[in-house]
Amino acid sequence: MSTAAPAKRASTSAMIASIADADQRTQTAPFGTALAALAETDQRVVGLTADLGKYTDMHIFAKQHPERFFQMGMSEQLLFGASAGMAETGLVPFASTYSVFAARRAYDFICLDIAEPNLNVNVVGGLPGLTTGYGPSHQATEDMAIFRGMPNLTIVDPCDALDIEQSVPQLAAHEGPTYLRLLRGKVPLVLDEYDYSFELGKAKVLRGGADVVLISSGLMTMRALQAAEALAAHKVDVAVVHSPTIKPFDSETVLRELDTPRLAVTLENHTVVGGLFSAVAEAAARKGVAKRIVPIGLPDEFLDAGALPTLHERYGISKDRIVQTVLAELG
Rank of each mutant, 00 (worst) to 15 (best):
H234A: 10
T97N: 05
Q27C: 07
V326P: 05
Q170A: 09
M72D: 10
L330R: 07
N152P: 00
M15I: 04
F109A: 15
L206F: 03
F80I: 09
E229S: 12
K287G: 01
M1F: 11
P177Y: 12
M144H: 13
T56S: 10
T154Y: 13
T132P: 00
L112K: 06
S137M: 15
A103G: 04
P128W: 10
A115V: 06
G125Y: 05
P6T: 12
T56A: 02
A103R: 02
Q166D: 13
V190H: 02
D160N: 08
H312G: 03
R207H: 11
C159R: 07
T49P: 00
A103H: 03
S243N: 07
Y196F: 13
P6H: 12
D300I: 00
R292A: 10
E268V: 01
G208L: 13
R105K: 11
G81K: 07
H138G: 01
F147Q: 13
A115P: 00
R25A: 15
A305L: 06
K8Y: 00
N269F: 02
R314N: 06
V190Q: 07
G73T: 10
D211G: 09
V156I: 14
M86A: 09
G306Y: 02
D57V: 08
L171D: 13
I293N: 02
D143C: 06
G208N: 15
S278L: 05
Q166L: 13
T41Y: 12
I146V: 15
A283L: 03
S96H: 11
M220F: 00
K247L: 09
M1W: 02
G209K: 08
V280K: 01
S197M: 11
P248E: 12
L206W: 09
A20H: 07
T221D: 07
G288E: 12
L127F: 14
P158H: 10
R25H: 04
V205S: 02
A50V: 00
S13T: 12
G81N: 11
L153E: 02
A39H: 04
E329Q: 15
I114V: 15
R9D: 01
G135E: 10
K204I: 04
D57P: 01
L48F: 08
A36P: 07
A5M: 07
A233K: 11
S318T: 05
V124I: 14
F198P: 03
G274K: 03
A22S: 11
A7H: 06
P261R: 03
A203G: 04
A264D: 01
N118E: 15
